[in-house]
Simulated assay, not measured.
Amino acid sequence: MVMSLSKHELEQSFKDKSVVELEDLVHLIEDHFGYDVRLTRKEDPSRLTDIQKKKMTAAIFNDPDVIHQLTQAELDRQRGISTYSDDEEEFARLIAEVKHDK
Rank of each mutant, 00 (worst) to 15 (best):
S82K: 05
R47E: 15
T83E: 06
D44V: 08
S18P: 00
P64Q: 11
D16I: 02
D101E: 13
E21C: 05
D65L: 15
N62K: 12
L10T: 02
V26M: 11
E23G: 04
I95M: 10
L94W: 03
K17S: 12
L70K: 02
D50G: 05
N62Y: 04
V37E: 04
E9F: 03
I81H: 05
I95G: 01
A96L: 09
Q78P: 00
D24H: 12
V37R: 06
E74Y: 04
T83N: 10
I29W: 01
K55N: 10
F14H: 08
D44H: 13
E74I: 01
E88Q: 04
S85F: 01
I51L: 11
P45D: 14
D87W: 03
R38D: 14
S82G: 01
L75S: 12
V19P: 00
K42L: 11
V2T: 11
I81A: 08
D16A: 07
L28M: 15
T57D: 03
V37Q: 06
H27F: 13
E74M: 04
D76S: 14
H27P: 00
L25K: 01
Q12W: 01
Y84S: 07
S18M: 05
S85W: 01
K7C: 04
E21G: 02
R77Y: 12
E74K: 06
L48H: 14
G80N: 02
H27K: 15
S13M: 09
L5P: 02
L94Q: 05
D65Y: 13
G34S: 09
K99G: 03
S13I: 00
F14M: 09
E23N: 11
L28K: 07
I29H: 04
Q69R: 15
L39E: 04
I95L: 07
K54S: 13
E97W: 03
S18Y: 00
Q72D: 10
T57Q: 03
T57F: 09
D24S: 10
V2E: 11
D50H: 07
D36W: 02
H27E: 15
I81E: 09
M1W: 06
D76E: 15
I81C: 00
S4T: 09
Q78V: 04
R47K: 15
Q12H: 11
M56V: 12
S6Q: 06
T49E: 09
R93I: 02
F91A: 04
M1P: 08
D65I: 14
D101M: 12
I51K: 10
D31K: 14
F61K: 02
A59N: 11
P45L: 14
V19F: 07
K17A: 08
T71S: 14
A59Q: 13
D63Q: 06
A58D: 15
R79D: 14
T57L: 13
S6I: 02
Q72C: 01
I67H: 13
D31E: 15
E74R: 07
R93E: 06
E88I: 06
L39C: 07
Y35S: 00
E89W: 04
E9I: 04
V20K: 03
L28P: 11
L48R: 15
T40G: 09
E89G: 05
E89D: 10
I51S: 12
L5A: 07
K7G: 10
E43N: 10
T49G: 10
I51V: 12
